[in-house]
Amino acid sequence: MNSLTAIDANAGSALTAPPPAVTARPETPRRAIPSSAGSGRRLGLEKASRFGWALGPFLLVLYWSVLSYTGFLDPRTLPAPWVAVDTAVDLVRTGRLQDNLAISAWRAFQGLLLGSGVGLVLALLSGLSLLGGYVIDGVVQLKRGVPVLALIPFMILWFGIGEVMKVSVIAVTVFVPIYVHTHNALRAIDIKQVELAETLGLTHLEFIRHVVLPGALPGLLLGLRFGVTASWLALVVVEQLNASSGIGYMVTLARNYAQTDVMLVGLIVYALLGLGSDALVRLVQGRALRWRRTLAA
């Protein structure tokens, strides 16, 4: 029927028969094959350097330094990098920076935890049952269209102006990306794996534990990366609107006194926090998704 049939039909003899003699063909011109690597076309990425990601930020700081040093950049517009460093050192010495940072980080962490939990549970409910999907998905899509800023007055009305409100605003922002990406990954689970689970006689719980959750983990972690960034963004909004502590408050206060250097330090702290927490999630991602073989791995 096909070429394989023929080989199989003669399986026994093909294996026991001596291999056909290899006859030398001296006339055949031999093509030299370059021994050095790299002559072939490679479409995948090469092995990543460990600190490669730092190149872009480094160039940015370099550019900024040159502009400040040569005087192209007015210090009233944007202070020089070394001024920012000086100010940061001062702020640390007086304890202002780390105190506010600790408060901010704690808020963001609580919001992230709450938001991730809610996002994950909602995604599971909506991804694994039709009814759940009908009830939950539309509401989440509606929420996606509402900006945090517009929500805050209501949050204040419902939760007051204390910590509960701040953490809630962060959680409400965080849960959306977690939900969207997890839900997406859940719905994309291969029907073949579902069939396999059926033929192996897995219970519903075993199916969720061994097939669904690991299958959706890449989505969840991607959502978490967006969620972490979202948590810092939400933090800025709540702290600058209504707070008496935290990095956002520090920045707002500095703005009132026109302390551009303090504002700048606040900005850099936000950026570093975002970068750091994203790196943390990527680390988790690398550990948890060891089984994948991808372009970047």
Binding site: K192, E195, L196, T199, L200, E206, H210, V211, P214
Partner: peptide, 22 residues
């Protein structure tokens, strides 16, 4: 037991865990 055309191993489980699944 069913054997499919593709092996249908769960990529996130090492070989032995795939064998004893369920």
């Amino acid at each position: 037991s069913v054997v499919f055309q593709d092996a249908r191993l769960l990529p996130w489980k090492p070989v032995l865990d795939n064998v004893v699944l369920g």
